[in-house]
Amino acid sequence: MNRIDNERGFMLLNVVFLTLITSFAAMILMNAAPRLKNPQAALRLTAIHLANEQFAMMESKAAAGTLDLSCQVKPEDLTTKNFSEGVPINFTVTSNEKSSNGNLHTVAVEVAWTVNGQDASVKLERTIRVVTD
């Protein structure tokens, strides 16, 4: 005859296993949640394209003969709401000259932003030729 005493151990084991599985699932969930809240990848993409915009402006002025290191990105492009749950995020664009050789200037553009109190930045370099007569 089946006795419940023999099955009590299995029942306890089930409870232990299910608790373990649930806690593992919770751990996975905890890892996934901050990635959704803190979408740095999308902001990095936005920042790279902002840096490209700054480079385009600088190249255009360099073709006319001057190397302008000030921020020339359109002001409305400096604020984004990409994936940030409706909270606007502001970018700051700074550029400085790293080295120059004749009329070739290597310029580094840094785009920085802050999400949830965390600072992040992207730095790109490009060599620009300043046309001189």
């Binding site: 915009e53 385009a56 190249e59 359109k74 409305e76 492009d77 984004t80 709401k81 990409n82 994936f83």
Partner: peptide, 13 residues
């Protein structure tokens, strides 16, 4: 339902 908006520029010599 997420939106992404990216602006960029390119210089065409």
């Amino acid at each position: 339902r997420h939106k992404i908006k990216i602006s960029t520029a390119v210089y065409i010599p």
